[in-house]
């Protein structure tokens, strides 16, 4: 049991929470602008797939990541078109994206690599070496094992916080989520702001998917995300749509996932199949204890009709 709680637990907790962090911050941007984003799961899947496919074709994980971001932007644009321009039911539109992502990425595995189920291995992202970091007590052992994407993910919380709360774009974005009519009356282009938020959201979710496939395993397999898009959404709600608590929620769910893996390795006497449910159970308990419904953006899910 002592083996379970170790520095490795913290490191793998960070690894496992990273896709959640990227996707949850994507969701945060979209929902703060007033658009519910249930499509994170599908956007992650598309991102994970194109990251591996383009790394396979072009030989560089950087180009794979770039392709994932572009795919995410495209899916985000379609999502925005359905839910902002056409004013479709946002949950239904997102369900469509998730279903298409799940079917299409699974079908394309066979098209691209000739056999179903899983892609061959591609080059993964390497660890970033920071000189002397290894000498730091405790933290050093974590720092020396992080990849570029881990750093990007960890820096995302302060960046998103600054964008949302310290820039005029952030102010406009939040105003669209709280009171689009009022925002429009003072000259905010609500539709354009929502488009940008939803597209950015798709890119971040796709980056989360790319992290899963390119930084963690180096392959794409069918439904590799396994509900992490929804976990990210749960983390966003549990964090009450605020960057720092959302980061905390993602780390909590990531740690639960890591604990589940470590417990298997350490041979804790609990069936492996049951342990798999741990992060989802933690998320459920978190949502059950979540207090107050007033923290969601006031105009979330509400369509804006331009006069």
């Amino acid at each position: 049991m002592a083996d379970v709680f170790s520095i490795n637990l913290v490191v793998s907790g960070i690894y496992l929470s990273m896709p959640l962090i990227l996707a949850a911050f994507g969701g945060l941007l979209s929902e703060r602008s007033g658009v519910i984003n249930m499509a994170l799961e599908g956007e992650m899947l598309f991102g994970a797939f194109s990251a591996v496919a383009f790394t396979w074709w072009l030989g560089s994980p950087w180009l794979g990541l770039l392709a994932a971001l572009m795919t995410g932007a495209l899916i985000g644009a379609i999502h925005a078109w359905l839910s902002v321009t056409l004013r479709a039911n946002q949950i239904v539109a997102a369900t469509a994206i998730n279903l298409i992502a799940s079917g299409l990425t699974a079908a394309l595995i066979e098209t691209v690599w000739g056999k179903p189920g899983v892609s061959p291995s591609v080059r993964k992202f390497g660890i970033v070496h920071i000189p002397l970091a290894g000498h730091l007590p405790f933290l050093g052992r974590i720092v020396e094992r992080l990849t570029v994407l881990d750093w990007a993910g960890l820096l995302l919380a302060p960046i998103v916080w600054i964008v949302l709360f310290r820039t005029s774009f952030g102010l406009r974005l939040r105003s669209c989520g709280e009171g689009p009519e009022a925002a429009a009356s003072v000259g905010v282009a609500v539709i354009s702001v929502r488009y940008r938020a939803v597209i950015l959201s798709g890119m971040l979710a796709a980056a989360g998917g790319a992290y899963l496939s390119l930084a963690q395993v180096g392959v794409f397999q069918r439904n590799i995300t396994g509900g992490r898009g929804y976990l990210a959404l749960a983390a966003m709600i549990f964090g009450k749509w605020r960057p720092v608590p959302v980061l905390g929620a993602c780390l909590l769910f990531g740690l639960a996932d890591a604990f589940q893996f470590r417990a298997q390795v350490a041979g804790v006497n609990l069936p492996h199949d049951l342990l798999l449910a741990l992060p989802y159970l933690v998320a459920l308990v978190a949502l059950a204890t979540f207090v107050g419904r007033a923290s969601a953006p006031a105009a979330i899910g509400k369509h804006f009709i331009k006069d």
């Binding site: 479709a88 369900t95 469509a96 279903l99 298409i100 079917g103 079908a107 069918r222």
Partner: peptide, 23 residues
């Protein structure tokens, strides 16, 4: 020689059309 998974894609497209049908 079409993957069975394409059926899920067609389901997704039906849902997308239902979503877009509101227009």
């Amino acid at each position: 020689k079409v993957s069975k998974d394409m059926v899920t894609v067609i389901s997704g497209l039906v849902v997308a059309f239902v979503a877009a049908r509101v227009v």
